[in-house]
Design a protein around this nucleic acid. Structure first.
Lengths: 319, 319
DNA sequence: GCCGGACTCGCTCATATGAGCAGCACCCTG
DNA sequence: CAGGGTGCTGCTCATATGAGCGAGTCCGGC
């Protein structure tokens, strides 16, 4: 006759634990375990199912490095991204954060760029931070995707950036000297026809992987916003722009916005960016949540390197 | 052409993490995962192997109760026990500890005793603690295995204990009124021939499951030691006795010891105890490490209900 | 340029595993 | 005490998985 308990007794629990240990920790097969414990393999399978469903077995994915791989994987899946790297840091100082994210992005670039690729680089502090950490790269052509925006607080500019990376990789560099934004469309047109600029632009269509800047369309959250006249900024804002992706403006819904202002920007177009296989951004700071969301929704950006708090904020708002 | 990295890059890590999550957390098959990620199932299997061997996947066995099932399972396996229950508590007060272990032991007994069993109970505070917590039991005969030892600090005695349990179970009780130890062998012999005592002893051979006391052969660590005259205690100690299992004396090597002193004890014999299918002890307190070791090594005790510190101490000394 | 070594890949085939089913013991309830 | 429900068991058979293998690739040394 059987014992009364149908709620599991301690002995049953310990048996289940033993089996779970054998299976999950020691990696033995259910058949082996069944033989050892004189049970049918079906019984073993059922006990293991029960162990899992009752939460007795807890499985964690982690890694002894600066990258929170589990969070990365969740971010990647939740937004359908090609790449997502989340650096596990609580650092809040933007400069220090840039260095950490730069390192992660540099590692990522080293890993994914092959000699069959054509690498596109936009101007952005985050991109500069990445190139500063870059130590090796397959020999791929490097193409400048945007004009430069020199600000008093930043020493490097996008020209040096492209040249440095090309030197490191050993591939050809396609670069030009021009500002990211000019006062009127006519000037922009003229600049685009300059030989070096035209040459670089001519390579936009063959770019296979790019690293771009990502700004939130607010003062202090976008280098481009801060560099533009108020009227232009307002006009774009009225059109629903919430983010700029290295000169490509997108709304919260992820729609690229084309206006007269766009003509004044010397940069890759939305259509050209959309044709690039992988476009990676390196956003940081909690103010960029909406910008990242918009950029990802647009489909223009399909790779993200960021830090844990921002990643969590992105995942938290379920929509 | 492939990227340079042969140390795993961040993207590789995240891919592996995604796959590990799908497999271990979501419980999907490798074939499904392979389809989802456009990989061969072999590649998936290799990444999973790598994830495990690199420690990326951490698996823990735990349970939201008072029992440390993982420690229990390890103890059970390490000592080849039929049962091991480790209560996860840091409680040090003996009385409080007894209550907790009593509860666990009571649950165990409810679980494993069936109406086909014959239950044997020895006198011991720990056994009393167990019966105090016992709420249900299959209808099995209950047999008293030892004489009683009434001490001023303990109110219950083994007679009440057996009667209480039998009443709870609904089975017959075989009990007697006699002390555990008497001054001389002749008295013991006479007592053993008393009808009730002889009747109980007559049932020893049919006992299938028993709960016994376990003392370390030192002052304060064994009720029997404290109740005996110094000379007898010393004699047994000289014979190498380190533990008493409800009146059965064993050496550190696990050998039962038979002396003149043994004849003065009214209790089950070593041979009779050895014939019982399951003999469970409820040791606690760090002073009992060696006694438990001896009792288990003797093979007389093959079930243990104890607390985490003692279990860890037992496992720590690898021998 | 040619070779060996170290690696990765995906295959075959034997084995392990899961889904679903039928037999059985128990337990109510009428 | 008959009948139906419930839960547990171990089965069959289709599928998933692992061990080991040979082909292809990359790379450094001669």
């Amino acid at each position: 006759m059987e014992p009364s308990s149908h709620a599991f007794g301690p002995s049953q629990l310990v048996l289940t634990a033993s089996i779970a240990r054998r299976y999950y920790v020691d990696g033995r097969s259910k058949v082996e375990i069944a033989d050892e414990f004189r049970l049918s393999r079906f019984k073993v399978a059922r006990l293991l199912d029960q162990a899992r469903s009752s939460g007795m077995v807890r499985i964690e994915i982690s890694h002894p490095g600066s990258i929170d791989i589990d969070l990365s994987a969740r971010l990647q899946e939740a937004f359908g991204l090609r790449r997502a790297i989340v650096v596990d840091t609580l650092e809040e100082d933007p400069a220090a954060l840039r260095v950490q994210l730069g390192k992660a992005a540099a590692d990522l670039l080293s890993e994914i760029v092959t000699s069959d690729d054509v690498l596109g680089l936009a101007w952005a502090r985050a991109v500069t931070a990445m190139t500063d950490q870059l130590t090796s790269l397959a020999p791929a052509p490097v193409v400048q995707l945007t004009g430069a925006l020199t600000r008093p607080d930043v020493e490097a500019n996008s020209v040096e950036l492209v040249r440095t990376v090309a030197k490191l990789s050993g591939g050809p560099a396609y670069l030009f000297y021009a500002p990211l934004v000019v006062p009127d469309a006519a000037t922009a047109r003229a600049l685009r026809q300059q030989p070096e600029v035209a040459d670089a632009i001519g390579h936009f269509d063959s770019v296979t992987k790019a690293v771009v800047g990502l700004g939130s369309w607010t003062a202090g959250q976008s280098t481009l916003f801060d560099a533009m006249d108020d009227e232009a900024c307002d006009q774009l804002r009225r059109r629903g722009v919430v983010a700029d992706i290295s000169g490509v403006f997108v709304t919260a819904a992820g729609e690229p916005v084309q206006t007269r202002v766009t003509d004044r920007v010397i940069a890759i177009t939305a259509a050209q960016m959309d044709a690039i296989d992988e476009v990676i951004a390196i956003p940081y700071g909690m103010a960029k949540v909406e910008a990242v969301r918009a950029a990802v929704r647009s489909g223009l950006v399909n790779g993200v390197v960021t830090h844990a708090p921002l990643a969590r904020a992105l995942l938290a708002e379920t929509d």
